[in-house]
Design a protein around this nucleic acid. Structure first.
Lengths: 214, 214
DNA sequence: CCTCGACTATGACCGTCGTCATAGTAGCGG
DNA sequence: CCGCTACTATGACGACGGTCATAGTCGAGG
């Protein structure tokens, strides 16, 4: 997860996302964010005049962009892209993390939704946008692989639902089981949705790139 | 959701679960729980001498039992039980709530996991147990419907993963879409796992009942 | 009537949190 | 050197939060 170098503002957003996904929104203090980002505490009110809510929203936005952009990289890593292969990569990002760094972290968008969906509507909207961006990237990739338009978005939603739920269970169990199960059980269903040959991105172009938003 | 009458202790556990699933663990105060349960504040330290952590753990346990027991009722409501029918009922519980009461509530087990998995191990274990109980009930039901033993648990895990994730997305979107999508897309996969005729619970017995724990 | 246990009732303590106010520094164009 | 803007530095404030201490009620048993 890149994001170490940048300016203090970006570092704080990044640190906020890190802390939120570990402890939840409520238990993440602003002083803690500043310390984690090695940024001056005074900069918080300078860069985020609307306070914690703004910082949280930007952290959620960052997470959504990150997840969306990640899809293109997963595709690039696959010798020949298939829906099940993409999902396996998405899952593998989490199993890798859990096996090397422990089960401390979850998804910051999920945390923001759980902690703030009811109370802070702007945060709820940020989470909605993050999910939309992520879903859009996955759905675009599925279409490129030959999944019919109408099925791409539902299947992308199903993939992300299963992944988010499996992340929860994995953290609760401190086991990667739910994640690998999701990948194994869902794989065939996803591949069965391919009805025409994959769109070839051609040399120099990665399939799915045109779905990236920035 | 029953649980209004009982003694003050049970009311507080129930209220805690309600508040946690709406606001998250961190934002749920003990004074708030007592007020919601119309229970005296002084009773908190009497019934829960280990403080908030104990109360949260019991709320999570309550939610796990509730979800597990609910499975048997879903089965009873189905004319002829099928895996997709069961999953549709599980999903419908949420779509019904969201359509009649709004998108304020989520799953308390998910909230406890997000907010406390890293910090409070006893709460993490409570969440693990809750998921286990729920998964066990669903897996038992699947087996009764003719799903082979080895596939029941993985499929049950997949069902719960998808449901939990879809709940998150539904709350973020304030839309029931992700939930209905999960039911629609996953249904065929679940039914395809049936390899032998369903076990008939016989007259007077509801299929799956023997999997209830209490 | 006294005791005892279960339960209730409150107020205080101390920590943390988000926010605000205020002042300080650094670089830069003029 | 001035003035201006961008950013940093700190301390204080008020609002809870969880927990603890202490005392009060009340019914049952003796």
């Amino acid at each position: 997860m890149a994001g170490a170098g940048r300016g203090p503002r970006e570092r704080m957003v990044f640190s906020a996302a890190q802390l939120i996904r570990r402890e939840g929104v409520g238990a993440t203090g602003l002083r803690e964010v500043a310390a984690h980002a090695r940024a001056p505490r005074g900069s918080l009110q300078h860069y985020f005049p609307d306070g914690k809510e703004q910082l949280v929203n930007e952290a959620v936005g960052w997470a959504g962009r990150y997840a969306g952009n990640r899809v293109a990289r997963f595709l690039a890593a696959l010798p020949e892209p298939t829906p099940s292969g993409l999902f396996a990569e998405m899952v593998r990002q989490w199993t890798d993390e859990y096996e090397t760094e422990g089960f401390d972290g979850g998804c910051p968008v999920a945390a923001a939704t759980v902690d703030r969906a009811r109370t802070a509507d702007s945060t709820r909207q940020a989470a909605e946008a993050a999910f939309a961006r992520w879903t859009g990237a996955v759905a675009g990739a599925l279409t490129d692989m030959g999944v019919p338009e109408e099925r791409s978005r539902p299947l992308a939603t199903l993939m992300i639902s299963s992944l988010e739920g499996a992340i929860l269970i994995a953290r609760a169990e401190r086991s990667v089981r739910a994640l690998t199960t999701a990948a194994r059980e869902l794989g065939p269903l996803l591949d069965a949705a391919v009805t025409r040959p994959a769109t070839d991105g051609g040399p120099g172009g990665t399939a799915g790139n045109r779905h990236r938003i920035d």
